[in-house]
Design a protein around this nucleic acid. Structure first.
Lengths: 229, 229
DNA sequence: TCAAAAGTGTTATCTTTACACCCATGA
DNA sequence: TCATGGGTGTAAAGATAACACTTTTGA
């Protein structure tokens, strides 16, 4: 029998976080200048190593918090990358996690103590190792999630206009959507509260503000409703 | 900076394979009696440990081959499980892989040198550690894949009847399908060759045999066709 | 001649897409 | 009064779902 604990190899297990951000206009990605060899000074995902005493989910959050200050972000596991020579430094596997956050609410990551920086997803520099591959896979997953879970709604300002919501989806899906069809679809979901308030900054007429109705959404989910945008 | 190779913990990384089988009637799962402590003698997924010199994909195939004799099976990575106490023996993470194969063509796994055994998916014994969770997740993934990729077609006999194909999908999706709608849908995909030959074993009238047209399928994929059953 | 499974189409409903004009307002 | 973005509905096309009778043939 080949499987016994004592004879098995132990390996380094890294984590890399693909953090997507949205700021009312475009999809961004959070990158960091790697500060150790090899590839020191090159752009990379936010990453670190798993500790023996934590789960991957915990490690992903710890690393993200440590390198960007971002706290309490919902990270989802993407895939574990394992090419033998993916990291020329040492034999390392890496489990990738991703999240989508409001990059306007988290500008500080790019200033403070952290050397993390937001890049437009289309203008991001090339990345070390297999990080480019990770990002590609994460984008595909993000798109699937976006139409399947209301991940979008939660990262707009608390009150938002339909156009803002649409722009968000357009940025994630990287395609233009039809205004009327989009609104009809969203309204059919019946999980938004239309406020009396208007946002007057964008036009003379002003546009109504909406709020995500989490209660209603959760209840619908309980009842077997499936979000499909 | 927290991330340097030398100070990072190394961990044991296991692999567990969820092997689904189909035998013209029902969906099965391949399990094995664990032959080392802890939980020796209990039913478990086919598993082993990653070696430093191989990728996860390679390890999954090696382990599967070694414990079941199954060779050249397409395994897809599912998820990496990392609860700290998931394996009471030692701190171990496990990356789960899954595959769907024709269990009739692979009866030997249950006989030969291997103690692997096929169980009806609904009658499988409870499993060690978090293997039950792995199986659940794999079933969900398998269902998504089945309607998105023609995974089914490839594991029927080379020539098969529509009813066989339908039974396969019914077993995977665990729901009854409408005969006419199913046939119409499959025919609309236009990736089967209808043979002149009939299968006379199932009825007086006999039913036409079909073949999966891989050439045609591959070409359609190139042209941007998306399989959707 | 009949039992058993195979084969076959149509209709109703729902979903998706395409598309264009009026509205309200502040400057 | 006009320029700007906001708001609104419908019709056509396509996809999905429901549904039942006739055919073949070996026993």
């Amino acid at each position: 029998m080949l499987s016994t604990y004592s004879t098995a190899d132990k390996v380094l297990l890294a984590l890399d976080c693909i953090i997507f951000g949205f700021d009312q206009h475009e999809l961004k990605i959070l990158l960091i200048k790697r500060d150790f060899e090899p590839e020191k000074g090159k752009w990379s995902l936010i990453g670190g190593f798993l500790k023996r005493t934590e789960t991957l989910d915990e490690a992903a959050n710890r690393i993200l918090q440590h390198l960007s200050g971002l706290d309490d972000i919902y990270l989802e596991q993407l895939y574990t990358f394992s090419e033998v020579d993916r990291d020329p430094g040492e034999r390392t596997l890496s489990t990738a996690y991703y999240a989508l956050i409001n990059s306007e609410n988290h500008k500080q990551v790019a200033n403070g103590a952290y050397s993390a920086q937001w890049f437009n997803i289309k203008e991001a520099p090339s990345l070390i190792f297999d990080h480019g591959q990770m990002v590609e896979k994460a984008i595909l997953r993000l798109r699937r999630r976006a139409v399947t879970k209301p991940i979008g709604f939660e990262l707009l300002p608390e009150k938002f206009t339909m156009l803002q919501l649409q722009k968000l989806y357009e940025a994630i899906l990287d395609e233009k959507l039809d205004k009327r069809n989009f609104i009809n679809k969203v309204n059919a979901l019946d999980i938004l509260i239309k406020l009396d308030e208007k946002d007057m900054t964008s036009s003379r007429k002003g546009s109504y503000l909406y709020q995500f109705d989490k209660q209603k959404y959760d209840q619908k989910i309980e009842e077997g409703f499936t979000f499909k945008l």
